[in-house]
Amino acid sequence: MTPIKLKLFSTLGAHLPPGAVRNCAEVEVASEATPHDVIVQYHLPEESVHLVLINGVYVAPADRSTRRLQAGDELAMWPPVAGG
């Protein structure tokens, strides 16, 4: 298993496991898990996952199934959002 920080913001925050603080939970995912695996594991509506960052770096939709998570990574996800 691989320990990561899972950060789910905006309406995705409702999918965080109990014990999450400020939209962040320390969780364990399968070895070599991808963002897509985590999306499935936490029952996130795929169509609502718009912005995915690993350690602040953007992960394109095409790379969500191939980018492997490593221990200590911070995986942050948002639905479509905007501001200004």
């Binding site: 950060k7 905006s10 939209n23 639905p79 479509p80 905007a82 501001g83």
Partner: peptide
């Protein structure tokens, strides 16, 4: 999704965590 849900619910302030992350 942005103008129909995101902005009404969280306002522009939803960006605080995005830009910080």
């Amino acid at each position: 999704a942005v103008t129909g849900q995101g902005l009404p619910t969280y306002g522009t302030q939803v960006l605080m965590n995005v830009i910080n992350e």
